[in-house]
Design a protein around this nucleic acid. Structure first.
Length: 561
RNA sequence: CGGGGCGUGGCGCAGCCUGGUAGCGCACCUCGUUUGGGUCGAGGGGGUCGCUGGUUCAAAUCCAGCCGCCCCGACCA
């Protein structure tokens, strides 16, 4: 319970000058957060109430699938990180203690927990197990941004499953999917569970939970029954009208024309008739020429996953040496490995001739050059999802991820168990993260209107905002105070605006703060023995008798869910 | 790490080009006034102009270096 006359809720009339993202602006203005340094944020009392509510929902749902809560240190010795090969990560904060021994600030807790599991789990009888904690993570992000959306220090709920085999991992993974679905439903978000990149560290499967909103850093490809991170999304390309086929490629002079758009324009054909050639250097195969349709974009993550090894863009010197002048390179006659995107079908394409100011037309993959076919392009809005429906691309915030780690950490840290026959096996592991702060920011992004925050009831800092329009001691203020105490007696979380401030300031602050229900106590309605109720989401106004205002407010909240 | 921008009372900004007493709005304090959409009046407090060095009789202003923060991109195990 809180009275605004004494509560630390420093609201701002104007947006902070350096804030762009909606959640950043509103959370600062509403007195929920303040910045201490780049990517370092303080939760003020009202904001922290919201965080704790989100965490409570998470704890309930992870407990419900058998998770056991514990707590591991943020400051950790470097050894386990060396063992897993993660000590070299740039984002990992590293420091020495006074004796000079190397330590890190944990960016996540696989190393710590697997260290314990390796020492304290020995038998198949002790598996499976789900353990979790809610703890600070430190990551030296190259570019923190957008308030609380991407920070260098943040709290994460991270759980870890330990099973004897892949089937067990599948079960633990499925349990987390159920818990996560409930968590994001209960916190009132719009969300997608999407297929995601497993990264170069391997692992057999991963999903991300994405909350769509304008400030999102990720892009998701969605269609009815389909959702994937664009990093891994696959879809049917939109058709392109190719020029008539030729019996063999023919040269076309294209002086000074180096871009797909320029050449297509000069030839009078669509950009999709181009074989766009992107030279890359893969770590194992070396120089590779990747081909995508002229109207498509190469997806470097999909390329790396399809090749099974990382690849970087080739330098101008490498291009010149292997093919020809940049701007006029192509697959025909090239003595390099060629990877062709699966969306390139049929013949009649144009491409660079590997000679200055010259392109080839009438090119047909297979007839004119050999290739390996892979899916390496980024999907685009309008492409057809597996169900045959068109895809839309939406920006989204990653609010959670789940990951089948396998034995990635248990093998290097020696976490093994003995089976019924006394034979030793590595424990099979999964990890599952949720960022409460991102849930809060996503809720603000998704719910806000032009007057301020609109909280989902489940995570609102207070359920009722009582605005007393009177002056301290007068009958309006007394009535507001009385209602506020009535709400407290009913166990309804309420905040009372009893400040010595004008009505405009109190009402705009109430809208900025965004509690689900507002009770406005003013002379106008009090003269008729009534107070006004406003539902923040939807803005439905009504009046209730002053004597039963607290009870009616509680009923209204129940109706709102 | 590449590109761009910004550092002047708590917040938002002007002043800098053309060196010469540090200003405005909001917020804050006191008194009065006002209470259904950021009232009105009077009085008042608060700033080593990010830091360091240089030029100059004189630096918020010119020069150099450094630090911090924001935005775009790269990165994000």
């Amino acid at each position: 319970m809180a009275r605004l006359s004494s509560y630390f809720l420093p609201t701002l009339r104007d947006d902070p000058a350096d804030a762009e993202a909606l959640s950043h602006r509103l959370m600062v203005r509403a007195g929920m957060i303040r910045q201490l340094g780049a990517g370092l944020w303080t939760w003020l009392p009202a904001g922290y109430r919201v965080v704790k509510k989100v965490e409570a929902v998470i704890r309930e749902e992870i407990d419900a699938i058998g998770g056991e809560e514990m707590l591991m240190p943020v400051l950790q010795p470097a050894e386990p990180w060396r063992a897993t090969g993660r000590y070299e990560i740039d984002e990992l904060f590293k420091l020495d203690d006074r004796k000079g021994s190397p330590h890190v600030l944990a960016m996540t807790h696989e190393e710590a927990l697997t260290y314990h599991i390796a020492r304290d789990i020995r038998s198949y009888r002790e598996l499976p197990k789900i353990l979790y904690h809610v703890q600070t993570k430190a990551r030296d992000e190259p570019r923190p941004r957008a308030g609380v959306l991407r920070t260098r220090e943040f709290t994460m709920k991270d759980s870890y499953s330990f099973d004897r085999d892949a089937e067990g991992l599948d079960r633990s993974y499925e349990l987390h999917i159920e818990a996560y679905d409930r968590i994001f439903d209960r916190t009132g978000l719009r969300w997608y569970r999407v297929e995601s990149d497993v990264g170069m560290m391997g692992g057999s499967g991963a999903h991300e939970y994405m909350a769509p909103c304008a400030a999102g850093e990720n892009e998701v490809a969605v269609a009815p029954g389909y959702a994937a991170n664009v990093e891994v999304a696959a879809a049917g390309a939109q058709p392109v009208e190719l020029p008539p086929r030729l019996d063999q490629p023919r040269e076309a002079p294209t002086p000074g024309l180096t871009t797909v758009a320029e050449v297509a324009g000069a030839l009078g054909v669509p950009e999709g008739a181009a074989l766009k050639a992107i030279p890359v250097v893969a770590s194992e195969r070396g120089f590779v020429l990747a081909l995508v349709r002229g109207d498509h974009c190469l997806n470097e993550i999909k390329l790396a996953n399809a090749l099974g090894e990382p690849a970087r863009q080739a330098t101008a010197e490498e291009i010149e040496r292997n093919l020809g002048p940049p701007g006029f390179i192509g697959p025909v006659g090239a003595e390099v490995a060629i990877v062709k995107d699966a969306a390139i079908q049929g013949g009649g394409y144009f491409c660079g001739a590997n000679r200055p100011d010259t392109h080839l037309i009438g090119v047909e993959p297979g007839r004119d050059f050999s290739f390996e076919e892979l899916d390496i392009r980024s999907v685009e809005a309008g492409d057809l999802a597996p169900g045959g429906t068109p895809i839309e691309i939406e920006p989204a915030i990653e609010v959670g991820n789940i990951f089948k780690l396998g034995t990635r950490y248990t093998v290097p840290l020696g976490a093994n168990y003995l089976d019924e026959g006394g034979k030793e096996h590595p424990i099979v592991m999964g990890s599952y993260g949720i960022g409460p702060a991102r849930i809060v920011a996503a809720a603000v992004e998704q719910g806000a209107d032009d007057r301020g925050i609109v909280w989902p009831a489940a995570i609102a800092p207070w359920q009722v905002h009582v605005v007393g329009l009177g002056k301290a001691g007068d009958e309006v203020a007394e009535a507001a105070e009385h209602i506020y105490e009535g709400l407290a007696a009913l166990g309804v979380e309420a905040i009372l605006d009893d400040r010595d401030a004008g009505p405009g300031q109190k009402l705009t602050d109430a809208e900025l703060l965004g509690c689900p229900l507002r009770l406005t106590v003013g002379k106008r309605t009090l003269a008729e023995g009534q107070v006004e109720t406003q539902v923040r989401r939807g803005g439905e106004d009504s009046r209730v008798e002053v004597g039963e205002a607290a009870e009616r407010a509680a009923e209204l909240l129940a109706e709102l869910g």
